[in-house]
Structures are given as C-alpha cells and as structure tokens.
C-alpha cells in the first residue's frame, strides 16, 4: 500500500479524508488493541488531518496517542459503570 500524502488527502472531499486516514490507522491500532480498534480509530480521527499524517509517519507518536486513547476510554468506562451502579 502506498503511503498516504497530504496532497492525496487534499484531493479528496473532507468526509473521505477521514475515511482514508481511518483505513491507514485502523490496521495499526487493530494489531495493538483488537477489541477497541474501531472506537480508538474514531477518537483519533477527531484530531487534525495534518497531525494524523505526522502520526502515520511516526510510529512512536502514534503509539503514545493510542495509549492515551485507551486510558481515556478506560476512565470513561469506569465512570459509566459507577453511574449505573449508583
């Protein structure tokens, strides 16, 4: 698969741009967190496209963002669970 470039993205309509980025991010996220991959990808797609492109080029920054998303999700799930039990 050829690398995604800023000019390729710019040529696509905005909604498709997120889909294109998601298609690149999803397999990487799925290899780390299979059960939460769709959710994590959705969270990361709210970040600016330019920043997402940088992450695709830098596995280290992508990984730290993925771990951040996992942490946010876990806190969210715990707070949801405690709301239900109260």
């Amino acid at each position: 698969q050829e690398p995604l470039t800023a000019s390729m993205l710019a040529a696509a309509p905005p909604q498709e741009q997120k889909q294109m980025l998601g298609e690149r991010l999803y397999p990487l996220i799925h290899s780390l967190h299979p059960s939460m991959a769709g959710k994590i990808t959705g969270m990361l797609l709210e970040i600016d496209n330019s920043e997402l492109l940088l992450m695709l080029e830098s596995p280290e920054s992508l990984h730290s963002k993925i771990e951040e998303a996992v942490a946010v999700l876990q806190v969210h799930q715990i707070s949801e669970a405690s709301h239900k039990s109260n």
Partner: peptide, 23 residues
Amino acid sequence: KKSTLNPNAKEFNPSKTLLSVNK
C-alpha cells in the same frame, strides 16, 4: 495534561476488504 480525546467519538468502520482476513 488533560487529554483532548473524546471517549464518545463515533466508532470508525473499516471497509470490508480490510477486515476480510478476520471474517
């Protein structure tokens, strides 16, 4: 620092072609 990530974000649905290996 507080995370800017939103836990209520819409889930991403990958295209079927990507997932076909798992189905």
